[in-house]
Design a protein around this nucleic acid. Sequence first.
DNA 1: GATGAATGAGTTTTCATTCAT
DNA 2: GATGAATGAAAACTCATTCAT
Lengths: 232, 232, 232, 232
Amino acid sequence: MYISPKEIDPGKAPKKRLPERDPERSKLLLIEATLDALAENGISEATVSKIIARAGVSRGMIHLHFGSKDALIGAAAKLFSERYYDEMERQLTDAANGPAATVLAVVRADLGPQLMNKKSVAIWHALRGEAHRNATIGKYSNTRDRKLRKLISDSFAAVDTIHKGADRSELINDATLGVLALLEGMWTDFMVHPRSFNRDDAFRIVYRFLGGLFPEAFKPIHGDCQPRQVPK
Amino acid sequence: MYISPKEIDPGKAPKKRLPERDPERSKLLLIEATLDALAENGISEATVSKIIARAGVSRGMIHLHFGSKDALIGAAAKLFSERYYDEMERQLTDAANGPAATVLAVVRADLGPQLMNKKSVAIWHALRGEAHRNATIGKYSNTRDRKLRKLISDSFAAVDTIHKGADRSELINDATLGVLALLEGMWTDFMVHPRSFNRDDAFRIVYRFLGGLFPEAFKPIHGDCQPRQVPK
Amino acid sequence: MYISPKEIDPGKAPKKRLPERDPERSKLLLIEATLDALAENGISEATVSKIIARAGVSRGMIHLHFGSKDALIGAAAKLFSERYYDEMERQLTDAANGPAATVLAVVRADLGPQLMNKKSVAIWHALRGEAHRNATIGKYSNTRDRKLRKLISDSFAAVDTIHKGADRSELINDATLGVLALLEGMWTDFMVHPRSFNRDDAFRIVYRFLGGLFPEAFKPIHGDCQPRQVPK
Amino acid sequence: MYISPKEIDPGKAPKKRLPERDPERSKLLLIEATLDALAENGISEATVSKIIARAGVSRGMIHLHFGSKDALIGAAAKLFSERYYDEMERQLTDAANGPAATVLAVVRADLGPQLMNKKSVAIWHALRGEAHRNATIGKYSNTRDRKLRKLISDSFAAVDTIHKGADRSELINDATLGVLALLEGMWTDFMVHPRSFNRDDAFRIVYRFLGGLFPEAFKPIHGDCQPRQVPK
DNA sequence: GATGAATGAGTTTTCATTCAT
DNA sequence: GATGAATGAAAACTCATTCAT
């Protein structure tokens, strides 16, 4: 999912022959290494030494490019968040037509392996615990929070208008918070029970929630069938 | 919520007024201080120096009673988990009659201020990020996981049997995982948006989920009303 | 060889029924445990905690009976030295008649398993390294030094007088220092090469040394034979 | 004897006068300081704080260059051993012609002030006591063991063949072990009785041992004379 | 006399940051 | 821009000693 350090152009840029000094590349290497270290070791083990070893970069680089380790972690949180939204948008562009389909696409994407996987879930939980003492982390560690809230809320409003023609803001708000909370909980469940967790089950549970609130937009499930499978 | 060190009976013993040498008291002081430090500083700032300063004990005590800082944090995770269950059980004893009421009581308790508050939510997230590198934390940081899963599942099974008379294990399983995921998500929401979070809204959202899955057991809500308010 | 703690009267004293408080026994337990710890762990690992655990005695006992850990180690060094001489004397009483036989008996005893074994050799080397900073250790860690020097020296003087009738103090002194140095070196060899070390070889080497200096008293060895075997 | 930090060329580099950042120099400073601390304080007092104070470097340096205190002590043991052999070889190159002369040169060197002096003898005994718990110390603390054994053994074989023409491996082996044990014992004697110890006496004693085993190669001493004086 | 909880100075180790090269 | 040796504050841990019980 994420661009691994090895895939980054190691010097075959067509224009520059010896880009020995490529600050942007170094910064990206450091951020990738930080995310790797966060995922594998947790926040308390993600030390400068481990990060530079992973990045294959010199010790002074963190301070040179980011000013401090905290700033590096903040930058990593920012990139992590941006990548989430980029991938989410990519999948929504492919899939969505109509408000109900949009909501389902969001759920499907959030529960799919591109967004919810061992690494991203581990990073997410590692950052969570440090959000209170690092403003940048706090700002960017709300993963599905900022942009998605409005998109989902608007979709429910459209769904509701189509079917009922009346304003029911409480229902719409409850649906929005509920979907986000369910997805949040699913990420934790995925982390705590990686073996037993099942993406299809998770999707179906969210779908049941949606069907309970907007029965006409999200028709009840019969038997094992489900509207559309979550991607592998 | 938690018994602060000062509240511990300083003269319970009828004969001796100041039991200066009380290992159990010292251990508890350290665990309380650890939970405080975890809640206020996060895992990476919960240092031995901060913990002993809070507990008002000497440096060597952690090693004396727990063997290491990690073991102390493990013991703190254990007590944190036990207190969650103790309080949950206390509230269930007061409230529950019938399977649907039991589920609602669990939800109400989990979202109530005794269990879900700034401190416990902060501790919970701090421990989450370290669960992978401390077996004891891992074991006890599943807060509402171990005992509740069966209780809720059994309750849904009873609810379903009453109303439908047929075995529908998938629905029961989905309902169980869904409720737990929703509660999980609500704790995170409470942490991320302490200002805007509203316990009644959270309860109502879970109730809507339940009503969608078992409409007869959890009757639909009309307007703002709800079966019973979440305690302040 | 050494009286193990278990062999010490565990309470079957005919006079006292409950000798719960037996300071002498506690002191001995501590000294034994100290020697054990020294032998197994070396000086830097022979901590108070390990010693009291081995002795099965309370922490405060060391200070109570010896005043400090250093004093305990000094007492252990003293007992270690005394036991060496006691055993040496016991073996000399059994064996010796005539000055040459006395010297050979000393050598045989020093190289025998009662005196030179893994434990005593390990203790000896552990104490050696600390002799400079503990007066008591210094005083008593010279194992075969104090009393033996005169005994051996006098024996050589007698041997020499018998055979040559002239005073040759340099030869006598050289023989004395040489035998002691050889024995010293054999203890180290035993420690460094416990597998390949052979008591009979060691004895024969010392015998060759003696034969070289006093050929008539210590007749040359022919083939593999040797005057008398070192005890197993 | 050992190159003291101050003697290290502080301006060897033709261009730069103060190479502040010189890892090799830092490592050597630390090792020297460790050997000094070992000699003066013994193993249990050779703390990181004392070592860095002697070396005049920062606390973190030990970890930076050696990884741990134990590794530093191991490196010090290695250098100590290497210096012994280097000096021994230097003296053998100067002196030796013929097998008997080689053996005497080894003995003379081992007992001479370059190799056997207060510092080296103190270090040797300090390391001995810790050899069992540090593999590197164990490997390198056999000072005169590894290379010398073969050299001496081969020399005796040559001596014996010259004079007797017969294979007498037991004698050769006994002579080898005996010389090494004697030297070993002399080092301990030098440590325990630094005042009364006399290098010439020590040499003469070893010479007597050699003369007793190979009379033709090591001719008897008459009076106080000896083939060649041990260097002061 | 005996206990063992408690202490805290001191130990090794860690690690983000600095800065000469 | 880049490096990595160097730093030292602060971390966790050790352990002989103390002293209330």
